[in-house]
Design a protein around this nucleic acid. Sequence first.
DNA 1: GTCTATATAGAGATAGAC
DNA 2: GTCTATCTCTATATAGAC
Lengths: 209, 209
Amino acid sequence: MPAAATPHFSTKERILSVAEALFAEHGFAGTSLRLVTSQADVNLAAVNYHFGSKDNLVAEVFRRRMDEMSRARLELLESARLVEGDRLDAVLRAFIEPALALSLDRDGGAAFVRVLARAYAERNDRLRKFLSDNYGHVLREFSRAIAECMPQLSKEALYWRLDFLAGALTYAMADFGLLRRGDNTDEKSHCERAASELVAFAAAGFRAG
Amino acid sequence: MPAAATPHFSTKERILSVAEALFAEHGFAGTSLRLVTSQADVNLAAVNYHFGSKDNLVAEVFRRRMDEMSRARLELLESARLVEGDRLDAVLRAFIEPALALSLDRDGGAAFVRVLARAYAERNDRLRKFLSDNYGHVLREFSRAIAECMPQLSKEALYWRLDFLAGALTYAMADFGLLRRGDNTDEKSHCERAASELVAFAAAGFRAG
DNA sequence: GTCTATATAGAGATAGAC
DNA sequence: GTCTATCTCTATATAGAC
């Protein structure tokens, strides 16, 4: 499963894929470059050659997935704006489904969802600034779109509920649940169930009170 | 603010308080024992003397808060069972408010809420087993209580919604939001607002569809 | 119970040959 | 672009004096 088994990818790509999987499993600080390079079957010095530093490697792991996910979210959001009548469900699906798509992606997307959850927990200022600078506008777009669906909702309540949604989405997609679930369902239907449950849960939550 | 300023506490207590704050900020792997001992103003060897290992120190940081929080949750849950009519709001408050109380606690409880969020993101098997073994029964009690409030809800939907609640609670309490909020509210009302918003959001979510 | 000193290992980063 | 070798720093853990 590590990229060592796919030698047709460049050294740089192999490093990124292996780093993503290891960051998901051990965190950023808990993943050494030695572990990354040995699993990627490249030389230890290759990380610094291609990325300059461990911090830059972390940022590149994010950029590779977030650009695509943000594009997908904004595109679906545009479609949702065309929905007649009550658009809240469509807007929420536009936020949730690209994350679902990632977590169904064979090529490491599932690991990246866990990396995202790690990033939330990190107080690392450089990482937070990188994410906020590069992808904060996506959250702001959704904030605006939901506000248009729910004009009677106060700005504070809207922000809280967006936070609740982001937290629930990240946890559920990263499969951090502490209660055990039956293992007789395959990953695909598991994730699709999660997405539709979350859309229903969040839509009701946004419409509350 | 670090416990170095409170020398009336034992070495062991000072280590626990400082470790909690540093784990919240830098994570478990990102926090070295050297940083802990220097900020706690104790000798480097003291950690191994009092706790045996870094892993045991992590576990003790959890035990110190989780025992109390779990007791409070279960006690409030018992009270909620006495509520006439629709108990869902009371049950959810029993789950949410002890976390709120922690995050308002002056003596490091606020840091611990972030440590909890870290624990979710950790795939560390020892830590997950420790938490599941020692505190899993609390979640199971809440699962049962909510099922009693919502007998028409399928078991799968119940588990998903509990996951969404846990995720939303952890994120909101740990203040991980990426959208910026006004800073003109003090911490206490900020947290109380979070709790009441979350109770309303989650109650509507559980009642959905 | 607390200290110094150190054993042992592993980290990130870089220089310079190829 | 990739390698070996190594610098420098830091980590956890422990032994043994006080």
